[in-house]
């Protein structure tokens, strides 16, 4: 209950944040730009619209999420407003989880809003609705979910917004290089290969959630077991990050 109250407050706080609206507005502008780019692809306009739109929704939500995660707790700590919450019967874990879930709700809302705009553009252009579309957005949300927990951990560890943001972005990029790192592992040998392999395992595996890249591939087959495993991966990975965040947060002297 306490977690939910903090999450709700956190969400309302995000709704008051101008940056949040800026991102959604920017999303609208970029979707408009993708319309123009789509025209250049002539008979493949729908494909381009679909690809660009889905990627932009994901990337913009990611930027918003990283920015908000890394700034919100640190800002409250700097301004000492965190005392207003922690002096009440609220544990640090509850505070952390409330903030995290509040952020996730606002990210999901932004994603749904941009998805609706994108979907209406696609339908207006003659695209036939595919049930995979909401699933692709859900997978993107899982990606952002995972990266939010990671950036929260980094923000608490680094105590610097900029450092946390930069490292999170690097991890995001590396997470998409899973197959390329595997390729490098094959080309390397000895300790270098072992080190690369270990790092690639610890990195968040973003390709697992990259459904928007593969769902239209002729050989792609949807499997509920893979879906369940992907959700479980996101849950477990973010739980591990939240666990570490909580340990860090507990050890901090506010």
């Amino acid at each position: 209950m306490i977690i939910w109250t903090i999450a709700k407050n956190s969400w309302v706080d995000q709704l008051r944040n101008r940056f949040y609206y800026l991102i959604i507005l920017f999303g609208g502008v970029l979707l408009y730009v993708s319309l123009l780019v789509g025209v250049l692809a002539v008979e493949q306009e729908l494909r381009v619209l679909l690809d660009l739109g889905l990627a932009l929704i994901e990337l913009l939500t990611l930027i918003a999420a990283i920015f908000v995660t890394t700034t919100s707790i640190l800002r409250e700590m700097e301004r000492k407003t965190i005392y207003l919450i922690l002096t009440r019967p609220v544990s640090r874990l509850q505070y952390l989880l409330g903030r995290f879930f509040g952020l996730l709700i606002s990210v999901a809302c932004a994603m749904a809003l941009m998805g609706l705009v994108h979907l209406s553009v696609l339908l207006a252009k003659g695209w036939k609705f595919d049930l995979f579309y909401p699933l692709v957005l859900f997978y993107s949300l899982l990606k952002v979910w995972l990266i939010c927990s990671l950036s929260m951990l980094l923000a608490l560890y680094a105590s610097s917004t900029l450092t946390a943001m930069s490292i999170t972005l690097i991890l995001w990029l590396l997470g998409h290089f899973g197959h390329e790192i595997a390729f490098l592992v094959k080309k390397s040998a000895g300790i270098k290969a072992a080190l690369l392999q270990t790092v690639s395992y610890i990195m968040p595996n973003m390709t697992l959630f990259n459904l928007r890249e593969v769902w239209q591939h002729p050989d792609f087959v949807f499997s509920w077991s893979v879906f369940g495993a992907s959700v479980a991966y996101a849950l477990l990975y973010s739980s591990a990050c939240l666990f570490l965040s909580q340990r860090l947060f507990n050890s901090k002297e506010l």
């Binding site: 197959h179 595997a182 050989d219 893979v226 495993a229 992907s230 990975y237």
Partner: peptide, 17 residues
């Protein structure tokens, strides 16, 4: 824990590129 998780997740990925 994350390493083991990552090891398991690798097999789940469909990557035709």
């Amino acid at each position: 824990f994350l390493g083991l998780l990552g090891m398991g997740s690798e097999r789940l990925v469909f990557w035709p590129f």
